[in-house]
Design a protein around this nucleic acid. Structure first.
Length: 570
RNA sequence: GCGCCUCUAGCUCAAUGGCAGAGCAGCGGGCUUUUAACCCGUUGGUUCAGGGUUCGACCCCCUGGGGGCGCACCA
């Protein structure tokens, strides 16, 4: 850690400056900012020179800076830049200022100001005095006039800083701001000659000093590794990154609204499971110390939620993180967010309907339209979504009729002729699914329900009322990706036990993703579960669809990555 | 896990076997209506790491590491 910076005196209490008279002044002005006092708007409480407390103590002007560790740094480079800014912090403190004040009274968000003054003509002045806060994103210095662009969560605005208005000391302090610093300013709304909406700054307070420089102001951050590892920097400089997560938020919010409107109750069920059931996937294993027992992170929400249907809750849903110990790709993150719902007295057709409503509403709420462009095809989510049987799609793709009632050997032959490798333990339904995945899945562009999955790959689904080899199950595919999975829920405890036992023997035969017999779940079913429709939607993939991105990492804030090797230069 | 691609200044990118460069950011100077401001000057490099080939390596080869994409895995 030869280049490690330690700000002196800030690890101990009291700090060396805590006893100084200047510091007591700062404390007093902090009190002026505190919530307990009557909150008058503005009122000149922000000293125009509060950054260095009125003292004309100036920064080194020869381009060198002394880091707190005493090492001299010249020129640029990350370490030199951090040293220069750290030295600025020390100077502010030495002059009795506070580079990291406690709070700031903001009168408006930037978007509020922008909408209030949307019709202001070029070259206008107003009586609208505001206090706004944001991060300095751009700066243009023309001698006795400085233009800064600051940004808050809602928007950006220009600060118009005139030496004649703010005074020499205040002007020098604004000049010493770096891109990335947070500031709070007070002033009147105006427009420049070119019509740019601005705040004519009379007071400027540093709210937080950035010690590390921002990525390129124009190109932003494009190195994907850095973007994901330093998501904070990505969010600061990349508009798209912020937009993707706004969309994600709007989608989840929209789902909650749609579900609340249809009488669903949001619940939370355990993440730590004794048995990881409800899906075919390899789980993460963990351990509880006091109970001294092995636990699994959940791979699905299903079995707990259906226990609640047994309990009579009728309509429940959960939006929660699930974990699957499998490969990572543009479509898979080891932890991801699933929405599952269960509705008593409904069957799979009701569930397909609500799937369309949820996703169409989400698009409308998140991007204001149901029109999407998928692989250069214009898709209106509001159009009805086709419903195609899996066996029909697969049969058509290979030009041969297939059905799970056919002898396994015949299906194996057909699969092999169509370049699908068949594993020895696969049952007929699994072979059909493999043919579908190899020959149909990737070609599906617009939202399409694939229905009627074979019984042997659907241990929790109810048998199709018209075909004993199939189930009343569907999966939703869009752009070659599976987004949702739902079915008429199997509620016969005797049949469910038989299906679980088939799962267990497959697992014991070496198929690690298969399930086990969940005795407590069977006990629940014995109390009687009403006819029920259930649904699971991968929220990350819905967000990918609506945001129009090809990688799940664009809609997961902190995707799973290998640990970074930290160096002095990081 | 396998294959292909990639890693150069804080950021974005050049340099294809012959002196490691530019723009932005930074630093110094100028400019009172700019807006990716502009103008003049200027600092900054373990070219991911280690090894090899060569008179000479960012460049070619080997090993390792990070990342991306594809495959595999993944109802």
């Amino acid at each position: 850690m030869s280049h490690g910076f330690r700000l002196s005196g800030h690890r101990n209490c009291p700090t060396p400056t805590a006893q100084s008279p200047e510091n007591r002044q700062i404390r007093a002005s902090d009190a002026n900012n505190s919530k307990e006092l009557p909150s008058e708007t503005n009122g000149g409480r922000y000293d125009a020179v509060s950054m260095i407390g009125g003292n004309e103590e100036s920064l080194p002007t020869d381009g060198t800076a002394t880091a707190p560790d005493g090492e001299q740094h010249t020129g640029s480079g990350l370490q030199a830049e951090r040293a220069r800014r750290s030295a600025q912090i020390d100077d502010i403190r030495a002059a009795g200022g506070e580079p990291y004040p406690y709070r700031f009274d903001r009168s408006d968000s930037l978007s509020e100001i922008r909408s209030r003054h949307s019709d202001l003509k070029a070259g206008s002045d107003t009586d609208d005095r505001v206090s706004v806060a944001g991060r300095v994103m751009l700066a243009r210095d023309s001698g006795k006039l400085i233009f800064l662009n600051i940004r808050d969560r809602s928007d950006e605005i220009q600060l118009f800083v005139s030496k004649a208005v703010i005074g020499d000391d205040g002007f020098a302090n604004v000049k010493s701001l770096d891109l990335g610093d947070w500031v709070g300013v007070t002033g009147n709304i105006m427009t420049t000659r070119k019509g740019e909406l601005s705040v004519r700054v009379t007071e400027c307070q540093l709210l937080s000093k950035a010690v590390r420089p921002l990525p390129d102001k124009w190109h932003g951050l494009s190195d994907v590794d850095t973007r994901f590892r330093q998501r904070y920097a990505d969010l600061i400089v990349n508009d798209d990154a912020r937009r993707h997560f706004e969309i994600r938020h709007a989608i989840i919010s929209s789902f909650r609204q749609t579900l609340a409107g249809e009488g669903f109750i949001e619940v939370e069920t355990p993440v730590l499971h004794v048995e990881a059931g409800g899906a075919h996937a390899r789980p993460f294993v963990t351990h509880h110390n006091t109970l001294d027992m092995q636990l699994y992170l959940r791979i699905a929400l299903e079995l707990h939620l259906k226990r609640l249907i047994v309990g009579g809750m009728e309509r429940v849903f959960e939006i929660g993180r699930i974990f699957r110990n499998e490969g990572i790709s543009t479509r898979h993150n080891p932890e991801f967010t699933m929405m599952e719902l269960y509705q008593a007295f409904a069957d799979w057709t009701d569930v397909m309907d609500i799937t369309e409503r949820l996703i169409t509403n989400a698009a409308r709420d998140a991007i204001g339209s149901t029109m999407l462009s998928i692989r250069d095809e214009n898709v209106d989510l509001a159009d009805p979504w086709p419903r195609i049987q899996m066996i029909d799609a697969a049969s058509e793709a290979i030009g041969t009729e297939i059905h799970p009632s056919m002898p396994r050997d015949a299906l194996t032959d057909i699969a092999t002729k169509n370049d699908v490798r068949v594993a020895p333990q696969w049952l007929p339904g699994k072979i059909i699914e493999a043919i579908f995945e190899a020959h149909c899945e990737a070609d599906i562009v617009r939202p399409t329900f694939i229905t009627g999955h074979p019984v042997d790959i659907s241990p929790l689904s109810r048998v199709h009322r018209n075909d004993p080899c199939l189930t009343e199950r569907f999966e939703l595919f869009v752009d070659g990706r599976e987004l949702a999975n739902g079915y008429s829920e199997l509620n016969d405890p005797v049949e469910q036990r038989a299906r679980f036992e088939d799962e267990q023997s497959a697992k014991e035969a070496g198929d690690l993703e298969r399930g086990t017999v969940d005795e407590d779940y069977l006990r629940a079913l014995e109390y009687g579960m009403p006819p029920t429709g259930g649904l699971g939607i991968g929220m990350d993939r819905v967000a990918m669809l609506i945001a129009g991105v090809d990688s799940i990492r664009e809609v997961v804030l902190f995707p799973t990555l290998r640990p970074e090797v930290m160096t002095d230069e990081s």
